[in-house]
């Protein structure tokens, strides 16, 4: 058993090595597949961070009447947090609002003067609410409008932001959905091309397969080396793609970060190096093995 296995592996390796020309074409196609797969993974990472950035930009603020007590606002906050649509609620007190206002408008003399002339703090306390997804703001607003807190709420700025929120919401949804669709289509194409390449490689060996049968080789003696060969294609292709990716990401990543703050592909690549390598090898080897298995099946029928 062990002898048979080692003979099969050795024979697969020899075929791989002696058919270097054929092997290199299979490897380049397989490399392309792994390249596409890895790129899709990285693009998904980018898309997710883009969506996250967009999502962080969306929130709604609820402003409370000036006479509302802090307890009432905190109670409102508590019941909002209990909603499953709500991800976070930040409380901005009247004083904090004033501080922010002054900070923001410190260069505007007129505004500063007029606010200092007032006895009371004219700014309202507010709650900044973030939802899990952009489409959930509508429900949160409905909840507030239909609740006991309606009395103490002066205004909700959702109406003003509604159009922006709706647009961002549809953009993030489209981004994610099209990412998935494009990934599936590209991966499918890559898999089909690889499969056909290996099928052609095995087709070119059909005479040899027949000869092996005639000298009394069992199915595993014939199939085994081809499967090993397919695995080698995947392995070598994975390593080559990794070697290409490293410098490319190193060069591109800073530019990406400038474009999309908060995303650092090279960092992601480095901390997940082994997982990515394993994923690439797994994709390559399983694709090679599966393609060989399927492609050789028809030549083994008697």
């Amino acid at each position: 058993m062990l002898t048979t296995l080692s003979r099969i592996v050795k024979s697969g390796w020899l075929n791989f090595w002696r058919n270097r020309w054929l092997s290199s074409s299979a490897i380049s196609i397989m490399g392309l597949t792994i390249f596409v797969t890895t790129s899709l993974l990285l693009i998904n990472v980018l898309t997710n961070s883009l969506v996250q950035i967009l999502r962080d930009k969306i929130d709604i603020s609820v402003y409370f009447n000036l006479e509302t007590t802090e307890e009432q606002i905190l109670e409102t906050r508590k019941s909002l947090i209990d909603l499953e649509e709500v991800e976070s609620v930040e409380y901005v007190s009247q004083e904090e609002a004033l501080e922010k206002f002054e900070e923001k408008h410190q260069d505007n003399q007129l505004l500063m003067q007029s606010i200092q002339e007032l006895d009371d703090n004219p700014l309202e306390a507010s709650l900044n609410i973030k939802a899990g997804t952009a489409s959930q703001y509508e429900q949160i607003v409905d909840f507030l409008n239909g609740s006991q807190y309606k009395e103490i709420i002066d205004k909700i700025n959702y109406r003003q932001n509604q159009a922006v929120i709706a647009r961002l919401s549809s953009i993030t949804a489209v981004l994610q959905r099209s990412g998935v669709v494009v990934s599936i289509i590209l991966a499918l194409m890559a898999v089909l091309i690889t499969f056909n390449t290996i099928r052609l490689a095995i087709y070119s060996s059909r005479e040899e397969i027949n000869v092996m049968k005639l000298v009394g080789a069992g199915h595993w003696h014939i199939r085994g080396p081809f499967i090993v060969e397919g695995a080698f294609y995947g392995l070598v292709a994975a390593v080559i793609v990794l070697i290409i990716f490293y410098p490319v990401l190193w060069l591109l990543s800073p530019k990406m970060t400038a474009f999309l703050p908060g995303s650092d592909l090279f960092y992601f690549f480095r901390i997940n190096f082994w997982q990515i390598l394993l994923l690439q090898i797994a994709v390559g080897v399983s694709l090679g093995v599966a393609s060989s298995l399927v492609a050789i099946r028809r030549y083994l029928r008697d």
């Binding site: 048979t4 003979r7 024979s11 092996m212 000298v215 009394g216 080789a217 069992g218 003696h221």
Partner: peptide
């Protein structure tokens, strides 16, 4: 050798 190998 191949013919011998497949013959076990």
């Amino acid at each position: 050798a191949f013919a011998m190998e497949v013959g076990g």
